[in-house]
Design a binder for these strands. Structure first.
Lengths: 377, 377
DNA sequence: TTGTAAGCGTTATCAG
DNA sequence: CTGATAACGCTTACAA
């Protein structure tokens, strides 16, 4: 044993001393085993094991110029989630039981009912993230997860830790990203094409909307729809224009006034829905920008005593797990989220081929028919 | 602009030159803004912004001695998952579409049906992980996700990247962990008490099993149960002995022979179940070690034409989302998985108080009654 | 085959 | 308040 503190992390120097070799040999024992005689290599490895030596990734990254890690950054995503924990302060509402007390922590202090709500998890981002993790695992790359306000510093901090960064973009994001783009490869999820130099992984929103309208028109004879969503979001913009095109194609009337609502927007929805009811202007179908909008609509409709799909048809977009669990189960457009996450990881790892020009990967979505459109169970 | 390549990551030196100050001032501008005059600070910050400077986490970690990151390591977990992708080679069976081709990637190349199976995600580990991420986010700590064979090198690699490590232990893990324990705080999920110096976050398995037996005995008059699981897993051992104790307490007969099955064990289960049927020895209830075992049992029983709960009662353990979706929906014991992940993060971040002795946090689980026990919808 | 020594980009400790 | 300068732990020519 070396004389260093028992608690200090052993370094190459400690191992070198323990094994009676130079620090270079220690390094070689791990990185270039072939450049060492079997005897010394074994001696070094043995010493390392004895000392509990774990090479410092920081030092290695510094020397080698790369961290080996791929990053996934989420901008205050919870804010856009229909999430009970979507507060200005994350987790602000949750219990924080004492962990150093003896005895069992009672169920009431776990907030499990809140945390286990399937409308809060897994969402779109969670499945994309899972795909990213899965692929990184297959590639042998650690994943760095971070989140933040989308400010310069939060992005910079993450950018400094990884060899490549995948991001769910938000409007305020662009400038910060533009700054680091030359320095590190960046993949944007679900961002419409643009002339930045970022890679993109997205879904064909127009095709998804077309599938919805086609089904509604052909299978259910729907002639009259309205769109529910918050038009600012870029994905939403594409979906709305896709809906417009499809409505024209299938001879369906699209209400010019969008029902504007956030994903948690019961408060905003109820009045607008009431106005439609009062004016007897409720369309046959409410086509929602996301599943979460659809859930909010379902709740608001139920509160008004309006039946789905009998009185009005509702559809979603994303294909989250929660769409199976709503009542009625939601007809929606499924994005291949895991595949999207996997694609991003492959691009960043260089496993997708050389990036002489930015990747723009577009996946086909798929209509998932359940009961909220009027189809039978 | 400095004369460095456009693509090289700018460093303190570049910023210092651009702002006409020393590198120390650059560092201070970010870490100790108070120690700099407003004028220089602004000048430095401005230069940094202009250059797209992102401090290197590697260098900082090296200098500062800590990475700021908290790690979550999973040992070849997929192997223990009832997961279609649980192969020796992760993702081996999945399509890998070309990403550099033009045009939309067709749905068939996404393998989305496999990947979106709720029996594969989210599982116990995924929810614990989510809790870990949530808390790390609240604490402003990036998360490092890694996975590997549980070998020395895989653990060492992770250990070298983080300030603290949470782990889902596997049997082969112990020696590797013991090695790094003195060097870095380690939290074990769901590991029974032992005299290593690791922290622990777990659930009261015995209490969970007691709740199951109590319900079965009191509400359904069950007098006769068998246990399904793979006794090697440490969690399973605790659950089995909890079941034993509870069976005694409530005067329920417990079959001495455990139905031994892996989580994907249809192949092993069917013969054992058939033997029970043939001998007319099927107990009134099959108490399973995990939800995943229960799903395998449900499938095997259905294949044999045996009805649940009419012919035999089935219960699970964990409370995963998939338990809501099985048919019949599964009566199970829910672990507060998010809370467990959060607790681990707090411990590692030092937010749970000083760790003069290892934390051993035990959560209360909760019986979730659904239909597989015989309760009505 | 092994050792020496020069970085890598920060932070921190001193002087000035 | 600011600037030199020495760590930090590792990789990698280059020497021996």
């Amino acid at each position: 044993m070396s004389e260093a503190d028992a608690t200090r992390r052993p370094t190459v120097y400690d191992v070198a001393q323990e094994a009676n070799v130079s620090i270079a040999s220690v390094s070689f024992a791990f990185r270039r085993p072939d450049k060492l005689s079997d005897a010394t290599r074994e001696r070094v490895l043995e010493a390392a094991r004895r000392l509990g030596y774990a090479p410092s990734a920081a030092a290695r990254g510094l020397a080698h110029g790369r961290t080996g890690t791929l990053g996934l950054h989420a901008f205050d995503l919870l804010l856009e989630r229909a999430d009970p924990i979507a507060q200005a302060n994350p987790l602000s509402g949750l219990a924080t039981p004492r962990l150093d007390a003896d005895g069992v922590i009672p169920w009431t202090q776990t907030d499990d009912d809140v945390l286990s709500d399937p409308r809060a998890f897994p969402l779109y981002v969670d499945e994309v993230q899972r795909g990213f993790e899965l692929e990184c695992w297959a590639l042998g790359r650690p994943v760095m997860l971070s989140s933040g306000a989308g400010t310069d510093v939060s992005v910079a901090d993450t950018a400094g830790r990884v060899d490549g960064l995948a991001i769910f973009p938000s409007p305020q994001t662009a400038p910060a990203l533009a700054r680091y783009a030359p320095t590190i490869p960046i993949v944007l999820f679900s961002a419409p094409p643009a002339d930045d130099h970022h890679h993109r992984v997205r879904v064909d929103n127009a095709a998804g909307m077309r599938a919805v309208v086609e089904h509604l028109a052909r299978a259910h004879g729907v002639r009259d729809v309205a769109f529910v969503g918050r038009p600012e979001a870029s994905d939403t913009v594409e979906r709305l224009s896709g809906l417009r095109a499809a409505a024209t194609e299938f001879g369906v009337a699209l209400r010019p006034d969008v029902v504007d609502a956030t994903v948690r927007g019961e408060d905003e929805l109820v009045p607008q829905l009431r106005a439609l009811i009062a004016g007897a202007r409720m369309p046959r179908a409410l086509v929602c920008a996301t599943d979460q909008h659809a859930f909010a609509v379902l709740d608001a409709l139920a509160a008004e005593g309006i039946r789905v799909p009998d009185d009005v048809v509702v559809t979603g977009f994303d294909g989250t797990l929660a769409a199976r669990l709503s009542s009625p189960p939601l007809t929606t457009v499924r994005q291949p989220m895991e595949a999207m996450g996997r694609a991003a990881a492959r691009i960043l790892a260089g496993a997708a081929g050389p990036a002489d020009r930015p990747f723009d990967v577009v996946f086909e979505p798929r209509l998932t028919v359940r009961q909220s459109c009027g189809c039978r169970a």
